[in-house]
Amino acid sequence: MSELDWASWVGFAGTACIIGAYAYLTLSEKPNPFLLHGTNLAGAALLTVSLVVHTNWPSLVLEGFWAAIAIYGLTKALRTGRKGQEREA
């Protein structure tokens, strides 16, 4: 078994960000979109660094879409000035 290199550790940090953001969204009554989308964007960026070193094209494309959605969410939150989203019933 080979040891993990720096790019793999960066990828694990990105994975932790995305899992943490999903847990935050699931567990929070009124998630802060800046925290949610910012953490998702950071996770996508960290995973992209890892995937550039250890290329996996399907995962790299997924991270591109993940980042784009996070940027859209941040932009929408900036435009509306929302710090917390109301849950729809």
Rank of each mutant, 00 (worst) to 15 (best):
residue 7 A to P: 01
residue 15 T to H: 02
residue 4 L to R: 14
residue 29 E to N: 05
residue 61 V to W: 01
residue 26 T to D: 14
residue 12 F to N: 08
residue 81 G to I: 03
residue 34 F to E: 02
residue 73 G to D: 07
residue 14 G to Y: 02
residue 88 E to S: 10
residue 1 M to K: 06
residue 46 L to D: 03
residue 8 S to N: 09
residue 55 T to A: 12
residue 72 Y to C: 06
residue 80 T to S: 13
residue 12 F to D: 09
residue 67 A to N: 08
residue 89 A to E: 14
residue 56 N to R: 06
residue 4 L to N: 09
residue 7 A to F: 13
residue 52 V to I: 11
residue 71 I to F: 13
residue 74 L to H: 02
residue 81 G to L: 08
residue 22 Y to N: 10
residue 6 W to D: 15
residue 13 A to N: 03
residue 18 I to P: 00
residue 24 Y to F: 13
residue 30 K to A: 12
residue 54 H to A: 04
residue 57 W to Q: 10
residue 61 V to T: 07
residue 10 V to C: 10
residue 40 N to L: 13
residue 46 L to E: 07
residue 42 A to H: 00
residue 5 D to E: 08
residue 4 L to F: 06
residue 79 R to H: 08
residue 24 Y to V: 03
residue 9 W to V: 06
residue 86 E to I: 08
residue 4 L to G: 00
residue 47 L to V: 04
residue 88 E to C: 00
residue 58 P to R: 08
residue 16 A to W: 13
residue 84 G to W: 02
residue 22 Y to R: 02
residue 80 T to E: 14
residue 75 T to G: 06
residue 21 A to C: 10
residue 33 P to V: 02
residue 41 L to A: 14
residue 35 L to Q: 07
residue 68 A to M: 10
residue 59 S to W: 08
residue 40 N to H: 04
residue 17 C to W: 05
residue 31 P to M: 07
residue 50 S to R: 09
residue 22 Y to E: 04
residue 36 L to F: 14
residue 18 I to S: 01
residue 68 A to G: 15
residue 46 L to K: 06
residue 47 L to P: 00
residue 76 K to V: 15
residue 77 A to D: 04
residue 28 S to D: 11
residue 39 T to G: 01
residue 5 D to Y: 04
residue 34 F to D: 04
residue 11 G to A: 11
residue 24 Y to R: 05
residue 70 A to D: 11
residue 60 L to A: 10
residue 66 W to C: 00
residue 24 Y to I: 03
residue 5 D to K: 07
residue 21 A to T: 02
residue 71 I to T: 12
residue 36 L to T: 03
residue 16 A to T: 15
residue 19 I to F: 15
residue 35 L to H: 08
residue 62 L to S: 06
residue 79 R to N: 12
residue 47 L to T: 02
residue 38 G to A: 14
residue 14 G to C: 04
residue 45 A to S: 14
residue 59 S to G: 07
residue 22 Y to K: 01
residue 30 K to E: 12
residue 59 S to F: 12
residue 51 L to F: 07
residue 75 T to F: 14
residue 82 R to Q: 14
residue 69 I to C: 12
residue 17 C to F: 14
residue 75 T to W: 14
residue 27 L to Q: 08
residue 36 L to N: 02
residue 55 T to F: 15
residue 83 K to D: 04
residue 82 R to G: 02
residue 69 I to E: 09
residue 43 G to A: 05
residue 34 F to K: 10
residue 74 L to A: 05
residue 10 V to R: 11
residue 11 G to V: 06
residue 1 M to D: 11
residue 7 A to I: 01
residue 70 A to K: 07
residue 20 G to K: 09
residue 79 R to L: 13
residue 50 S to F: 05
residue 2 S to M: 09
residue 26 T to Q: 13
residue 55 T to I: 11
residue 65 F to M: 07
residue 54 H to M: 02
residue 78 L to W: 14
residue 33 P to D: 04
residue 43 G to L: 04
residue 40 N to Y: 04
residue 84 G to D: 07
residue 84 G to C: 01
